[in-house]
């Protein structure tokens, strides 16, 4: 046995490497938003059907993550943030990442169709297609609008969850879609501000690379401002309630103040303090989405109790 062969055996993939291929953190966003949509949607879904549907949505999201890592293994190997992923680190072969992603895509769509309904399965298939083909293959290396358009794929899980519960698409589901869609650019551009060199080295045309940090800071603020009307409309939709309204007011205030802090700063100020405001903006963006969806879930739980003495206006 040669030294090289021995080395190859030593880095053979562990189970955790295959889990990493499915991007568990991205998956958690899909699981959480889809679960909230199922809970908040009108009508009853049997807990077993709901759990199984959420599981298959998670598998579909994971499959698109594996296909993304298959296609992007070359640039993942260049960026510090991603170079330890299983494919660029040599623990999983590219072909294996593709096989896992392709098989799990088909499996998740078929199983969601059998468990829930064809609309939900079709939406899941579309979201996988959009993330892999439209975002990863067509947009990511071509335009600074990559994550703006590509954000649609990450915004679909609550619509899929709504379809699981209602076999249709409602106004509230569209508002939840818009919320994630508009939230995606400030979330990723805040990250791009403090890992800009990574994207530039890999040749990814993030807005910070193509138009500079000043433009990115203003664009972050613009999208953050757009979130205000959408989240307030969600609070007065059929899934809204006092918890959603309170969360929307508090979270938008924090998000907007963090956005305003970004446009008041220059790169030299950020360099001096280690990009603390940009990192804070990124952290607040994570809290924003999870807390707002948690508030929607809280309203769904509280609605039967509050309905007796509180008439909440549903404007949309």
């Amino acid at each position: 046995m040669t030294g090289a062969t021995a080395e190859k055996f030593i880095v053979e993939a562990d189970f955790d490497d295959y889990v990493t291929l499915l991007k568990p953190r991205v998956m958690s966003l899909a699981v959480f938003t889809a679960a909230v949509a199922i809970v908040a949607a009108p009508g009853f879904v049997h807990p077993v059907i709901a759990l199984a549907s959420i599981l298959f949505i998670a598998v579909g999201a994971g499959a698109s993550g594996a296909l993304n890592m298959w296609w992007d293994s070359d640039i993942d190997g260049i960026m510090r943030r991603t170079r330890n992923r299983p494919v660029p680190a040599g623990r999983v072969r590219r072909e294996d990442a593709f096989a896992l992603g392709a098989w799990l895509s088909g499996f998740s769509v078929v199983m969601l169709g059998l468990t829930a309904n064809l609309l939900a399965a079709g939406l899941l298939a579309f979201s996988i297609f959009f993330y892999v083909v439209i975002y990863t293959v067509c947009l990511k290396r071509v335009t600074p609008q990559n994550i703006v358009i590509g954000g649609a794929a990450g915004a679909l899980p609550p619509v899929i969850g709504w379809a699981v519960a209602t076999e249709g698409i409602g106004t509230a589901a569209i508002l939840m879609f818009l919320l994630i869609f508009i939230w995606t650019p400030p979330h990723f551009w805040a990250l791009a501000l403090f890992v800009k060199d990574d994207y530039a080295d890999a040749g990814i045309p993030m807005l910070t690379v193509t138009h500079g940090n000043r433009t990115a800071r203003w664009q972050i603020l613009a999208y953050t401002a757009l979130l205000v009307p959408v989240s307030l409309l969600l609070a007065f939709s059929e899934v809204g309630g006092p918890a959603t309204l309170l969360a929307a007011v508090w979270l938008n205030a924090s998000f907007l103040s963090a956005g305003l802090a970004l446009v008041r700063r220059t790169d030299s100020q950020s360099n001096k303090d280690g990009w603390t405001a940009e990192r804070r903006m990124f952290r607040i963006s994570l809290v924003f989405l999870f807390a707002l969806f948690a508030a929607v879930a809280a309203d769904a739980v509280l609605r039967p109790i509050l309905d007796g003495f509180l008439h909440w206006p549903h404007l949309v």
Binding site: I10, E12, F15
Partner: peptide, 14 residues
């Protein structure tokens, strides 16, 4: 070998 432990763990989880 550590490799067998790793494979065994992978197979059990699967």
């Amino acid at each position: 070998h550590e490799l067998h432990v790793r494979r065994s763990r992978r197979n059990l989880l699967l």
